[in-house]
């Protein structure tokens, strides 16, 4: 026995160290994801805190007047109301709601067709084709909204005697809605497919037609999941930048009229940070405060949306 032991070594001292080094570097790589999150939270929070030392948090969140230009001048930095983000938040939600009103019917009906009616061959073609809509860069949508959709809407408005702003919330919202159709459709598709076939059989077994089964059993059962999916889509819409930068307005306008120009959180971040200015000005700090608000809003939407979708899927597992 002693001889055997001297010949067969059960440990490999040289490679142990290397293995350990590799494992550490693997772990370090995955830690980068955490670092990024920490980086985001810290950089946003630090700059936002500096901003809030100059502008009251409540004035920022509930102030109804946004005009950062006036605050450029040193004597007006402390002037209240110039950094009221309410019109931006309202504009953001107005455009997002318009987008959802487009994306929800198109996305859900597309999902119903693809999941319940389309043959597998047709589905294999149509589903990726629909995904292309999500792959088109947002700057392209923005350009299209600005030069085609907005003038067209304005033209129709004139034809029926309506005065529509050339950078209306409607134009930006419609195009953004088209962009998120694939997102709504793919989540709805997942959710509809997750509805157990036993429910479909139960309905069909009673003599219901396919559409009756879908409308009265499958869709009501899928509703929570679809609602979660819409939350995720709303988060996308709220964080979307280029479409609104190019097609929505710049002036803060507290309105819920989709025919008027509104501005959004992302538009103002871009406006505050492009061009030449001192980094420490209240203006640039305001951009980080807006960034923080945007981060928190989208995070909350995503967490709730994912929770609903996951709970739904587990319920039928």
């Amino acid at each position: 026995m002693a001889d055997v032991k001297s010949q067969v070594s059960l440990t490999r001292p040289n490679s142990k160290l290397r293995e350990q080094a590799i494992k550490v570097s693997l772990m370090a790589s995955s830690m980068i994801a955490v670092l990024v999150t920490i980086g985001i939270v810290f950089s946003l929070a630090v700059e936002a805190l500096r901003f809030f030392s100059e502008v009251n948090v409540f004035d920022f969140l509930f102030g109804s007047e946004w005009s950062p230009q006036t605050a450029m001048r040193a004597d007006q930095v402390a002037s209240k109301g110039a950094f009221g983000a309410l019109p931006l938040l309202a504009g953001t939600f107005l455009i997002s709601i318009i987008a959802l009103m487009v994306a929800a019917p198109f996305g859900i009906y597309s999902a119903v067709y693809l999941a319940e009616y389309a043959s597998s061959k047709r589905r294999a073609v149509l589903k990726p084709a629909l995904e292309i809509l999500a792959g088109v860069p947002t700057v392209v949508y923005g350009f299209f909204a600005a030069i085609v959709i907005a003038p067209a809407i304005r033209g129709w408005g004139q034809a029926i005697g309506l005065d529509i702003a050339s950078e209306s919330a409607l134009a930006a919202g419609l195009v953004m809605g088209v962009m998120i159709i694939p997102l709504v459709s793919s989540i709805s598709d997942d959710v509809i497919t997750a509805v157990p076939s036993a429910l479909r059989e139960g309905s069909v077994g009673l003599g219901a037609t396919k559409s009756e089964t879908i409308r009265r059993v499958v869709l009501p059962a899928a509703l929570p999941g679809i609602a979660g999916g819409l939350m995720l889509a709303a988060s996308r819409a709220v964080g979307e930048t280029m479409i609104v930068v190019m097609a929505a307005g710049l002036a803060a306008n507290l309105t819920f009229n989709p025919l008027e120009a509104v501005t959004t959180v992302t538009v103002q971040i871009v406006m505050l940070l492009t061009g030449d200015q001192e980094f420490d000005s209240t203006k640039t700090l305001a951009a980080f405060a807006l960034g923080l608000a945007l981060f928190v809003i989208t995070l909350v939407f995503n967490i709730i949306g994912n929770m609903i979708v996951n709970r739904f899927k587990e319920a039928y597992d």
Partner: peptide, 12 residues
């Protein structure tokens, strides 16, 4: 009519 192996009441 049909009654299935696993009870499948609708979520109603």
């Amino acid at each position: 009519g049909m009654v299935f192996q696993k009870p499948n009441p609708f979520p109603k």
